[in-house]
Design a protein around this nucleic acid. Structure first.
Lengths: 347, 347
DNA sequence: CTGTTAGCGCGTTCAG
DNA sequence: CTGAACGCGCTAACAG
């Protein structure tokens, strides 16, 4: 019995189609599923009846009987254009494999991410692509997802003890490329504005920075790392905090001649700090971001950045996920590293 | 029988909990649903067992037996930050009403939007919030959704024959406010860069413009409307096309001294055209957008714009939707108009 | 090629 | 307060 309010699709169901066309449920089911062994005429007829009734299959029933659904859940930061684009890119491939990508935006609030993942598991998805938000309690969530045995891809983070596949970019080398570039450009006082979260990937970016300045023979005092707090992308916290950090850095007597960000937002904050202090970029200051997910069409300045190759990341992820879903299990904690590419633009 | 690949939650189910705790399914069901007439101790025990088994209810089964699901589907342009923010705002309210908001991003491709809506209906959602993408075939889709009898809110568009509630901003007056402002500022040659789609809401913006310039006594030749094509937000088509249009407009001998956009992207395109032509904004040219959904933190220039009050829109929409879902049906084709507010910033 | 039957996991009667 | 039985809409196994 429908409860109240509305009667979905006027209650068009297999049974009703069966009755109206004088067939059995199974035949109707087979006809609509394009099962081979069903008379072409029958199929035709069934489809017409279904159409006339405005039939739309009941997804819940299908998932229930199958023991799992055809969903592939993208649990990703909602405000991050990176993730939206990723979803977009993944769609076609998944669709061909008759999976339905669904986008579950997180908002850098751990409690919500927990609740969301809980709900997603409730839907028995065929697979999960997870880009943990900066604040999420990765170990705990990883355990939960792990226990559910759903095929899992974790993006841009490392979650030890989590049974999925990790797809990251080469953080250390990425940042190092940026440092090498500005050093080659004659900048000998460099700074990194780094996010203050403990995710492995951000630590690697710091490591890459340290290593690179050491390799370049830059004295310790001339290489600064500023850790800033602030996670909420939606409120642009990383940007605003980086702005403040940038102002402080650039107000020093011996101010840096190059600033790298461990994300694009960080670099952007520094860029605006430079503008407001009247420092000319790139002449007096080089600025390099990391990620390439700020839409250039509306920024009026093209940020130079270490590009994370979205297409490669997504293709690898989806490929890997489909493999996992097909049971072609590869190994525990497989890790796929995607190379980065420095792209020099206006800064 | 689970098919293959994985066994969701190690197959923890009501029955298994029942067996392990020596109770019946129904008791377990009631206990977990916090049904009042169940012994407190029993409930306690059941919950512990459930927990130890890593039980997670099966969403499909629940939806199936209920005849509909607890989903509220947001079918909205994925690249539009407006919609992400909206989803975010709606979340809490819906959650309290024990609905689960789910975000289904569209991409300005009609075929995909059709497919998506088809899928969403398959999930028997409790309600739908729909912001039709620029290219979508509104009448057709409206009919489909209408036939499903799912409570529906349509945002920022008008879909005649569609049985939902419309929530729009006051387009005519909004644009008119913008025109009045620049005229009061002494600008007597004004242009509107308008999207070339036939959605009612964009027509209204054109109407508002025409009326306002007439009211201001501006001669016909000094008021221009440029219709531009290009829908795909993800590729910033509106921006790029507006940029070209802006260049053309501003290269005329008697160039406009104020340009309004019928969206923020349009205004932004004009703004960049002005920059590249060396025209000083706002001194020699005023530029006003519509919408206020370009994130100011990364644009380096704050666009003056006619603000669509997101909060009001969302609150009204969700309120209305919940009413509809509770069966408090109001009228066919109710229309809610949210006032706009001109906000003057850098342009 | 088609019909019959059973059961997916859960909520909901109706009896106790 | 608890249990037994039924059915939601659909697919799959087995007969014919």
């Amino acid at each position: 019995m429908m409860k109240a309010g509305y009667m979905p699709n006027a209650g068009a169901t297999l049974k009703r189609i069966a009755k109206k066309s004088g067939l059995s449920c199974s035949t109707v089911s087979r006809a609509l599923a394009n099962h081979p062994d069903v008379n072409t005429k029958t199929r035709q007829m069934v489809k017409e009846v279904a159409n006339s009734l405005g039939y739309r299959p009941n997804w819940a029933a299908k998932s229930l009987v199958r023991g799992k659904s055809n969903l592939v859940a993208f649990i990703v930061p909602g405000w991050d254009m990176w993730s939206t684009a990723m979803y977009e890119t993944a769609r076609e491939t998944l669709h061909q494999a008759s999976f339905m990508p669904v986008f579950y935006p997180t908002n850098s609030h751990t409690e919500w991410e927990i609740e969301l993942i809980d709900f997603v598991l409730t839907q028995r998805p065929g697979g999960i692509v997870w880009l943990p938000s900066a604040e999420s309690d990765i170990p705990k969530l990883a355990e939960v997802i792990g226990a559910s045995k759903v095929p899992l891809i974790v993006l841009d983070r490392l979650a030890t003890g989590c049974p999925g596949t990790f797809v990251c970019t080469d953080d250390r080398r990425g940042i190092a490329t940026g440092v090498a570039h500005v050093v080659a450009d004659g900048r000998r006082r460099v700074a990194l504005i780094a996010g203050k979260h403990e995710h492995q990937t951000f630590q690697w970016r710091q490591e890459g920075f340290r290593q690179a300045v050491a390799d370049a023979g830059i004295p310790e005092g001339d290489a600064t790392i500023v850790e800033i707090a602030g996670y909420r992308l939606a409120e642009f916290e990383p940007y605003f905090n980086a702005y403040e950090a940038g102002k402080r850095l650039l107000s020093q007597s011996a101010r840096p001649t190059a600033i790298l960000g461990s994300t694009d937002e960080h670099a952007w904050g520094a860029l605006d700090a430079a503008r407001d202090l009247g420092i000319s970029v790139p002449h007096d200051l080089r600025i390099i971001g990391y990620g390439d997910y700020i839409p250039r069409a509306i920024t009026r300045v093209s940020l130079s950045t270490i590009v994370q190759d979205r297409n490669a990341i997504v293709h690898q992820s989806i490929h890997e996920l489909l493999d996992q879903m097909n049971g072609e299990y590869k190994a525990e904690n497989r890790m796929i590293v995607i190379p980065t590419r420095l792209e020099i633009r206006d800064t």
